[in-house]
Design a protein around this nucleic acid. Structure first.
Length: 667
DNA sequence: GCGGATCAC
DNA sequence: TATGGTGATCCGC
């Protein structure tokens, strides 16, 4: 019945909210976030149907249906506004103005940097394959309740990451499900990243299996072409790790990312560094391929006739008139294929929050709920200790058994560090809400304070952690050194966060976007016997904003990209890398911590700094930061029963799906 | 500053 | 037979 999705975007007025359309969008929604990102061989319509049937009637399904309905209503509202505004406007004139903006944007295009996005192919799955060759050729997934990865054989059946295990089984009864082995992936990730780093010491890891590189300097210094360079790098990865990697080569981050998907797996794609070729490349590209545009934004754009990036130009008049919802400027940049070309690793001091959350079988009992809250507090305390963080604002998150999510926050005058403080704050926020049926509880800390930044300057550590001084060192040197320290923080602790210190968020293109807003819900008309989940009154006249997706250059400064980057090569020199720095070039280097001089390559220097700092200095810094508390508990003595499996550290994705805790044990 | 929502990995 | 966890950002208030 659902006649494919090709039809669903043709709608234009709210009068045509027929079941067929609702159904189509719902099916798509149920198919999950990554359904549109990768190509599948099996007919997606069949797959979506199977998924929907398997979900039917569940609370999860009902929640998705509700969100779908809300979105449909918002779209109707926007379309109505569009029609009104369009009637009152001189479209020709509007388009003319837009065209001038396009010219302006085009004139600022920077094609001078060679950016590469590298992306490991089915990372978890392929690592598992190395440990168990028997799996080759078979459909399998990694993850218990929810899959983190699916082998390519499994993908043919429509199995994807993020999919519930039992749904995946329906799509592919033969599917083999493997447990997650964090250490394996962590170790492999380190090895892979080490290779990338040889080509750009300033690379930006984006998760455990991805990264952005600027290979402009490398290519010049080695007198090698971009394609050849990437070929070589990918070969090196394969030789050293037995894993394959795909890559995209383009003038900016967004394009590179899109390109890395073009010849996946085990391939690369080079986009010519010419305006015309780039615009042509964008023309038929689905809007969904743009980083930052997810399912919701995709639907919003489709509703105004924008499915491909080329459609942005066609619909520029309407987009301009609806600027506040869609963000004209950013969409035009997307249409032109213009975005940021600045690659830099995430710095520790840029971190904004740290949190923990847990899902469990729905609980109503007050004491049992509080027990969960306490467990989460313990978890968070542990991670904060490990990372050297404390903070002033606590945000409680809870999800009802209906899958509706709420947050409650409170700021304090002082920083919270201890589990008891976190627990108390959480209780304060939760108890007033209480008679609830919960399936998830989480705590998050913001307004962070970096305990490792407040170490005694005498130790020489502060200099490398604290970049706010601004005067002592040159910015470049600072950046560079911080990067090293960053790696240390991960390697040193045995629980570390994900390889990219900042966490999961996308990339170096700071600033993903999205301002969708949604009235949310209001399942009950206000008043209905004091509906439990407090409200969401703003539901009424709400608007949907799409905005910023800024994968683009920073606000002003035409030449910012240039300036910024040119400083990068200076950076290298500044850090005692006198001669050309080929990946393995060993030169005389000085450890910034102990002052020792040695002949090593950059990697070797990093390793030494890691070693040097981890032995004591860090511990001392941390101890001093912790309110006089000695740097106790080197290894999780008591906390957390599962610290064994967790000591592998590194949870970039699921921490370790429930079960260990009393998820099941509780009646 | 708070709460909702979207997105990426 | 039971749909994850961490972090970021944006918008409206």
């Amino acid at each position: 019945m659902p006649s494919g999705d090709s039809e669903q975007h043709i709608s234009s007025t709210l009068a045509e909210l027929q079941p067929s359309q609702d159904s189509a969008s719902l099916l798509k929604r149920l198919a999950g976030p990554s359904s549109g990102k990768a190509g599948l061989t099996k007919d997606q319509t069949d797959i979506n149907r199977i998924i929907a049937d398997a979900s039917k009637g569940s609370k999860f399904y009902e929640n998705e249906k509700r969100k779908d309905k809300d979105l449909t209503e918002k779209i109707a509202k926007i379309l109505k506004e569009r029609d009104e505004v369009t009637r009152a406007a001189d479209l020709q004139k509007v388009e003319h103005n837009v065209d001038r903006l396009i010219s302006e944007l085009e004139s600022g295009r920077d094609l001078s940097q060679v950016i590469v996005h590298v992306d490991m192919d089915a990372f978890f799955a392929n690592v598992e394959l190395l440990h168990n060759p028997e799996l080759r050729g078979k459909p399998f997934g990694v993850g218990k309740g929810v899959l983190t990865t699916a082998s390519y054989e499994a993908r043919k059946f429509g199995v994807r990451s993020g999919m519930a295990g039992f749904i995946a089984k329906k799509l592919c009864p033969e599917l083999i499900l493997l447990p997650i082995h964090h250490t394996r992936y962590s170790e492999m990730s380190d090895r892979v990243m080490a290779v990338f780093t040889r080509y750009d010491p300033n690379m930006c890891p984006a998760g455990c299996d991805e990264g952005y590189l600027n290979i402009t300097d490398y290519c010049v210094e080695h007198n090698i072409g971009p394609e050849e360079c990437v070929q070589e790098m990918r070969r090196a990865v394969h030789e050293e790790t037995d894993l394959t990697v795909s890559a995209g080569i383009a003038p900016n981050l967004m394009l590179a990312k899109i390109c890395s998907d073009k010849n996946k797996p085990n391939g690369q794609f080079y986009l010519p560094f010419e305006s015309k070729a780039i615009i042509e490349f964008m023309q038929d590209l689905s809007i969904r391929k743009i980083p930052g545009i997810g399912r919701v934004t995709e639907r919003l754009l489709e509703s105004i006739g924008v499915q491909t990036c080329g459609d942005i130009f066609t619909q520029r008049g309407a987009i301009s008139l609806l600027d506040k919802y869609f963000g004209l400027r950013h969409l035009l940049q997307t249409y032109l294929g213009i975005a940021s070309n600045i690659v830099k690793p995430h710095l520790r001091e840029e971190r904004k929050s740290i949190g923990a959350e847990r899902t469990f079988n729905p609980l109503k009992d007050r004491d049992e709920i509080l027990k969960k809250l306490e467990e989460v507090a313990v978890e968070l305390e542990h991670d904060m200790n490990e990372g050297g963080w404390t903070g002033r604002t606590v945000t409680l998150k809870y999800k009802l058994d209906t899958y509706q999510v709420f947050t409650r926050a409170k700021s304090f005058d002082r920083c919270l560090t201890k589990k008891d403080e976190l627990f108390a704050a959480g209780k304060e926020l939760l108890l007033p809400e209480l008679p609830l049926n919960l399936r998830l509880i989480g705590l998050r800390l913001t307004k962070l304070k970096d305990l490792r930044a407040s170490a005694d300057p005498e130790t020489g550590i502060k200099r490398f952690f604290d970049t706010t001084d601004g005067s002592a060192d040159s910015p470049r040197k600072r950046t560079r050194l911080n990067q090293d320290v960053l790696r240390l923080n991960e390697d040193d602790t045995d629980t570390l966060d994900c390889p990219s210190p900042q966490g999961g968020n996308s990339v170096g293109h700071t600033d993903t976007h999205e301002g969708g807003h949604e009235g949310l819900v209001s399942p009950t008309v206000k008043g209905h016997s004091r509906s439990r989940p407090p409200v969401s009154a703003p539901g009424l006249s709400s608007t949907i904003g799409i905005q910023g997706i800024r994968l683009t250059e920073k606000p002003k400064s035409t030449g910012s990209a240039h300036t910024q980057h040119s400083s990068k090569s200076e950076l290298l020199e500044h850090v005692e890398t006198p001669t050309t720095c080929s990946p393995g070039a060993r030169t005389e280097q000085v450890c910034p911590v102990c002052g020792k001089s040695m002949k090593v390559d950059n990697q070797g220097l990093n390793a030494h700094i890691d070693f040097c700092l981890s032995r004591g200095a860090i511990r001392q810094a941390q101890a001093e930061g912790e309110n006089g508390e000695p740097a106790k508990q080197s290894t999780g003595s008591k906390t957390k029963p599962k610290s064994t499996s967790n000591s592998e550290g590194w949870r970039w994705f699921m921490k370790d799906p429930g079960d260990t805790n009393g998820t099941k044990s509780k009646r």
